[in-house]
Amino acid sequence: MSVVVCTFAVGDNADLAAELLTLARRLASDAGTDLRWLVAGPAHPESLQKTGAEYGVSAIDHINSPEVVPVAPDVSVEALAQYCASRPSETLLMSQTFDARLVAPRLAARLNAAVVMNALDLESDGITLRVTTSAYGGDTRAVYEVAATPRIIGVLPNATSPETVEGPAPVVELVDVDLSKVEERIAVVERREEEGPRLEDAQIIVAGGRGLGSADKFALVEELAAALGGMAAASRPIVDEGWAPRAQQIGLTGKIARPALYIAAGISGASQHMAGCAAAKTIVAINRDADAPIFRHARYGIVGDCLEVLSELTKAVR
C-alpha cells in the first residue's frame, strides 16, 4: 500500500503538515511502505527537504504552481487529479481545512475513489484501511473500513501531536500539471475579511456560553480576555442568538483552537463545542451545574455563577 500526504503550500500551515506527516508515517510503517509527500503550491525545495527529513518522508513531489491553492477548488481538483493519474497511489491524506472539505470529496469523485472525512486515526494491515472518525459532533467515534482503492482521507486538525524522527533528506521531484484548460467556475464578488488576530493562533482564550444569561454579559468575557492578553470566544448557541460575532465561534462548525489556556464560562461542554477546544493544554470550566459535561474535560472546575467569577477573575489578574 502506498501512502501519499498532500498539503497545500498556501492554506495549510506548518503545524497541520507536521501533524499529518506524523500520522502518515505511522500508517506507512504499519503497512510496510514508503511515505511520499505531495506539496501543491510555491515552496522552497530546501525547506521541504528539511521538513521531509524530520518526518521520515522518503520522496517529495512538488507541484510548483502558485495557482494551486485550496480556495480555488476547480484548479486544485484538476491539478491533484493529474498528479494522481501520473503517480497512482492507494491512500492519499489531506488536512481537513475548511477548503479541503470540498476539494477532497470532489477529487474522490473525479478519480472514482473512496472518501472518508473527519479522520482522527488510521490503521492498516497493508490492504484495508481502518479510519476512526468523529461522528455525532464528537459524541461518538465511527470506525470505517475502506477496502477500495484509491481512497482519500480528510484528517481533522489536532488529531495527532507532531513527532519528528531523524531521516535522510528526501529527493524533491517537480511535477508538471497542465492547468491551461481549467477555469474557476465560482467568482468571488465581495469579501469582507475578519481583521485582527485569529482564534486558531491564540494562546489564551476566554469563551462564554448560554450561562451568561444575556447578550450584554458577553462584555465580562471580553474583559477577562483583555486582562489576560487573550481572545474572547463563544459557543454556537450564543452566536446563533447574536450575542457574539460568528468569527468568534469555537466548535465543530466554528474555529478549532489549540490554546495553552481555555476558560469556558457558562458553557455546558457539548461535543460540538469540545471539538473546537479539546486540544487546549489547560481547560478551566466555570458552570453553575456541577454535572455539566465540560467538567469532564477540565483541569480546574469552579461550580458557581460564571458572571461573578468572571468579574472577580478580571480583578484578580489585573
Partner: peptide, 15 residues
C-alpha cells in the same frame, strides 16, 4: 466505506 463499529470515546476526567 463500511462502518465497522461505533463507540463513545472515553474522556479523561481529572478535574
Amino acid at each position: 466505506a463500511v462502518v465497522l463499529k461505533q463507540f463513545v470515546p472515553a474522556v479523561q476526567g481529572n478535574c
